[in-house]
């Protein structure tokens, strides 16, 4: 089960939209994942396999802590799907090696 968090400022707007979109994409692909919406002041990047967030917040997060998907047009589901595919493949690869 993958753990993914969407991150925004208040945990109620863009992170909720991204959570629904990401969960739909992963469900469609048959990837077992739990997507949680959270906010920048309370997120612990180490607790997740990947984070999805706007560039402004991505810049504030430690890039070595976890995989980070930056998304500036939050209505661009095609881009989000491509980025999620890269992350899912990367996670599968690192599990295989460990």
């Amino acid at each position: 089960m993958l753990k993914i968090a969407t991150v925004c400022g208040a945990g109620v707007g863009s992170s909720m939209m991204l959570k629904v979109f990401a969960q739909q994409i992963l469900d469609q692909k048959g990837v077992e994942a739990e997507v949680t919406a959270t906010d920048i002041s309370s997120v612990d990047p180490h607790a997740y396999d990947a984070l999805i967030t706007a560039s402004a917040f991505a810049d504030l997060l430690d890039p070595t802590a976890t995989r980070i998907i930056r998304i500036d047009n939050m209505l661009d589901k095609i881009y989000l799907k491509q980025q999620l595919e890269i992350v899912v493949a990367d996670i599968a690869g690192s599990d295989h090696n460990s």
Partner: peptide, 12 residues
């Protein structure tokens, strides 16, 4: 929220 967290409210 806008002054603290800035431009991310421009979602698209």
């Amino acid at each position: 929220n806008y002054s603290k967290n800035g431009n991310y409210i421009v979602i698209a």
